[in-house]
Design a protein around this nucleic acid. Sequence first.
DNA 1: CGATAAATTGACATCACTCAACACCGGTGG
DNA 2: CCACCGGTGTTGAGTGATGTCAATTTATCG
Lengths: 248, 248
Amino acid sequence: MAATSRNALDQHPFVARLQHLVDLKPADLKNLDDIIDGEVVIRKRRDLIGDGYEYRKLCFVKDGYAVRYKLLRNGKRQILNVILPGDIVGLPGSFYERAIYAVAATADLRMSVCSLDAYIHLCHRHPQFALALAWIAVQEATTYAEHIIDVGRRTPAERLSHFLLELHARLRAVGRAEEARFTLPFSQEVIADVLGLSVPHLNRMMQWLRKEKLIADSDRVIELLDADALQTLAHYQPQEMITIPRLA
Amino acid sequence: MAATSRNALDQHPFVARLQHLVDLKPADLKNLDDIIDGEVVIRKRRDLIGDGYEYRKLCFVKDGYAVRYKLLRNGKRQILNVILPGDIVGLPGSFYERAIYAVAATADLRMSVCSLDAYIHLCHRHPQFALALAWIAVQEATTYAEHIIDVGRRTPAERLSHFLLELHARLRAVGRAEEARFTLPFSQEVIADVLGLSVPHLNRMMQWLRKEKLIADSDRVIELLDADALQTLAHYQPQEMITIPRLA
DNA sequence: CGATAAATTGACATCACTCAACACCGGTGG
DNA sequence: CCACCGGTGTTGAGTGATGTCAATTTATCG
């Protein structure tokens, strides 16, 4: 796989994301490409990591969508975050003795896979990959932090607005959304489980946003009619991460 | 400060935590010690990082307690997590253009401070520090993830149980708790803002746990009377992180 | 065109919030 | 030594938001 093409990773949304954080030279990309074991495809509605299983890989999502979640005894499900192109599957699961959360594809998923060991080996030789990993983990933690605020203290309408804005920003960062419009890759059931709401109530909030002329949607295409008002409502503020300083 | 004693960091709870993750030699500790700028003390009830300020330091908590939080327009506060000895202040704040969350001491706080730049410089020379940072960020993300499940899908009683169990485990890891007993370093107002509950309701849940003989408490000393039942109730499961693999 | 998933609607019950008031404690200054 | 005060914990009454549990319509996909 490492040799399918000279620049196998060039189009990879994960690489695009990395290059936002740190300056990578072609040689670095080659190093990364060398530890990729291959490509994996997971069909929609399939579980890819089961809660409690041992897993020790990193998967860089090339295309498709998934959710990381936990199922409780009473049948309730909490989705921790949605996984988009450019994200890593296996974080945090691969860093624990056994995976603590499950991951399920919500749309056919294509990923480049490498073993965690190989990646860490690479980190020892090229510390910028270790720093990149740290940066991405911090970013992940920040996404989770906003999510805590959502379910803890934002009203349902605020939560939904916040979710839509953040999703839009993340999709836009990997070229999957237009200026004020994007295709929702998730069902209302999924979104309800992200936001800790019941499906009927989520549906009502969706209608409310439409009634208030904040969004319009048909099928799964969302249009942000008044992004400013949405941002105010949601207490949303875009967060600019610093880039990784170069060696002095 | 770097030279106050030959082993200035020996007793440091952050170092204890590091050594759980990776094998550090005395020379490594010396390297870490060398970039420490000094020690800082923050008095109880003082804000140490303000939301929106630029901050570019890492503070390793030696002693004391704090909370990381966000204030919303309507006056509501969501606490993202509680900060204990061994934790890092400045994560994730220092990785963004401007801090996104505020941090306030809830008890007098002593910390060793270094600049983020210096730490990253160290990472380039000694990649295991970069990996350690990644590991800690992943750990942070995991704590946040459990917190999402708390506020999203656990009932108030389950949340509180989960919080107490997790706090106990984290305190125990740094020698601040006994087998089944610990001193709660936070007021009910703080805990309510952690768990997304109102103070009166949190209070009632506390009473319920007492009534059910799951905990006993006087002053701020909590006794876990039936840890098994608490764990079941809370869907709590201890999470074992893997250690950072050594270079082959 | 049938089958399955997704979105929508409505009636109803209840959990948890709001807004009080009050008890208790330790410290502090008169 | 006592009065005051802020912080903390506790209690109660009332209510509205949000979940539950359907039924029903609409989309999607073989």
